[in-house]
Design a protein around this nucleic acid. Structure first.
Length: 575
DNA sequence: GCCGTTTTCGGCCCGACTGTTTTCAGTCG
């Protein structure tokens, strides 16, 4: 069994224990065990279990180890099943409502017998909830808002999960004997940050027969035909596949159409008609109505006298006009990245040592890695007190003189305090090679106060990078209120690079702001925000977002060489 | 339930905000 599945089971046990009102340190122990397991870098835990490696992990003791053993050996845990039978599953769902914790859920369950999201919504609407002691109309309204947020977002998955789920689905479609070839389309191909369904386009000689057969495959809960060649298939685990089966000669246009976006499609159709062509259904036709053969997507763009538009750019944000003027950017590639600047170590809330992180960066072909642990005010993340900073710097000096094959830079992810000050004194800040300044607290400030807070932080000459500039957590927390344009203008003016945080939960700054930021003169840093060596692989998600934002390699500072990045970081300090 | 010992039991991140109260419980990061 893989770490993700075991970790999920342990987290569920922790949730159930909390809902049961067990000693909170007991649930915390299961949560810690889950975290420890998730940090194990393997696809199969069995060998690490057998070798005793798992038993050695900090946070795993006799009880959690026996649960893990059971999960790895049998795929199930009797303890988890036991808890499931005691506590309604609906309470677990309620735990996902923002603003609801275990204590409130227990009260609501005990007093009103509410055991599901739907019942909770009823109780919030009809006033029963507001009448509970220490609840009130404000709490009921907040819970309703939370339920709405959950509903709106629960149909979506983060990009990496959607990508992982698409792999077996695509493989199954390709394995069908009637399918000649198949490709992913939709928002997954456009690399949007959240994805609702998986789109697959399949070329087949008998589209309708293939679609019908795939709709009856094992694991399918229900299927609904949509037109003659498309079928929406829902699998038992909730994954939704939009399958488009088309004859081979229609494949390229069908793929283009299934990739979207809707506004890109509209712009393309208008462009075609302005040139006397028509793009209708899965066909391109000339003025006489004759069908123009389109063997692949590039031919489609060629036929419309357009440069090829990469899927990431197909968002209806001027890409068709730019393709027509041959003015599309040369998008950044993952291979352009030369180093990373946003990584945590075990000095704060990271899992790996600095040496392990550095070795992993070297193995990925990068020439430098910046270690940016949390600053002192970030208690919850083990932020570094000044003496820990000094100790860390000594360790980095030692590592750099030991022939690592990769340069380790002394960075910090320093909190922007409520008043806009950076979380260390100027003397200590002087000791870092660079500073990422991030907001980690007081998210609910009004827009003006928050904007002033961040603008003030940008005035500190130590600040080199503005970390995750809007604070959003995809599918769980909105961005805080801020005048992002004012912030970007100032960042450009001060020479502070704007982060594209590559953690798939963040992907912040949003790609929709990147063209504006670039036009204002901003430079960018793509940061993995890695809390383990595995977290370094977040970089590909960040690069995907940079591409969606029309960025080129030259816009991104961590495409610079180690020598150049050092100069660049010093330059900001001197200005 | 786990950890770390000043070995076998005490402590486990903690401060601010929110909505409720009129002093604080609950949630969040």
């Amino acid at each position: 069994m893989d770490p993700r599945s075991v970790g999920h089971a342990l987290s569920q046990i922790a949730d159930f224990l909390e809902l049961k009102g067990e000693n909170r340190f007991k649930s915390a122990a299961y949560r810690n065990a889950a975290r420890a397991i998730l940090a194990v870098q393997t696809d199969d835990l069995a060998p690490a279990l057998a070798s005793g490696e798992l038993a050695e992990l900090k946070g795993i003791g006799p009880a959690t180890l026996s649960t893990i053993r059971e999960l790895v050996e049998s795929g199930e845990s009797r303890y988890l099943e036991q808890l499931r039978s005691e506590i309604p599953e609906g309470l677990l769902e309620m735990l996902r409502v923002p603003g609801l914790g275990t204590a409130k859920i227990q009260k609501i369950h005990d007093a009103l017998g509410v055991a599901s999201l739907a019942e909770l919504e009823d109780a919030a609407r009809d006033g029963r909830l507001a009448k509970l002691p220490r609840f009130g109309p404000g709490t009921a309204a907040k819970i309703l808002k939370g339920i709405t947020y959950l509903r709106e977002n629960s149909a979506y998955m983060l990009y990496p999960r959607a990508l992982a789920e698409s792999e077996p689905v695509l493989a199954a479609v390709r394995a069908h004997p009637g399918v000649e070839s198949a490709m992913l389309g939709g928002s997954l191909r456009r690399r949007t940050e959240i994805v609702r369904d998986i789109d697959v386009v399949a070329a087949c000689e008998s589209p309708e027969r293939v679609a019908a057969e795939l709709a009856r495959a094992p694991g399918v809960r229900e299927a609904e035909a949509r037109g003659s060649d498309a079928v929406t298939i829902q699998f038992v685990d909730g994954t939704v596949l939009d399958l488009h089966c088309v004859p081979p000669e229609s494949f390229a246009v069908a793929l283009w159409r299934a990739t979207g976006s809707a506004s890109h499609e509209r712009e393309m159709i208008e462009h075609a008609s302005s040139r006397g062509l028509s793009l209708a259904g899965n066909e391109l036709r000339d003025a006489s109505g004759a069908r123009i053969p389109v063997p692949d997507e590039r031919t489609l763009f060629d036929a419309l006298d357009l440069a090829y538009v990469e899927p990431e750019l197909r968002e209806g944000r001027g890409e068709v006009a730019a393709a027509s003027a041959r003015a599309l950017p040369t998008l950044i590639e993952t291979s352009d990245i030369r180093g990373v600047l946003h990584c945590h170590s075990d000095y704060s809330d990271g899992k790996a040592t600095i040496a392990e992180m550095a070795e992993a960066a070297r193995a990925l072909g990068w020439s430098y890695i910046g270690i940016t642990d949390h600053s002192q005010s970030a208690f919850y993340a083990g932020g570094l007190k000044p003496d820990a900073v000094l100790a860390q710097h000594e360790e980095i000096d030692r590592l750099n003189s030991s022939n690592l094959g990769v340069l380790v830079l002394k960075g910090v992810e320093a909190d922007i305090l409520a008043d806009g000050q950076i979380d260390y004194d100027q003397e200590l800040l002087d000791r870092f090679d660079y500073v990422i300044a991030s907001v980690h607290s007081r998210f609910s400030m009004d827009r003006e106060t928050m904007t002033q807070r961040v603008l003030r932080a940008l005035d500190d000459p130590h600040v080199t990078i503005l970390g995750h500039p809007t604070g959003r957590l995809l599918l769980s927390r909105d961005a805080y209120a801020i005048d992002i344009e004012a912030v970007l203008e100032k960042a450009a003016d001060k020479g502070v690079a704007v982060e594209i945080n590559a953690d798939p939960h963040r992907l912040d700054l949003d790609w929709r702001h990147l063209q504006l930021a670039k036009s204002l003169g901003c430079s960018f840093e793509i940061g993995p925000d890695a809390h383990s060596t595995r977290g370094l692989s977040n970089m590909s998600f960040g690069v995907g977002i940079a591409r969606k934002g029309w960025l080129e390699a030259s816009d991104v500072i961590n495409t610079l060489s180690a020598t150049e990045i050092r100069q660049r970081l010093r330059r900001r300090r001197a200005s």
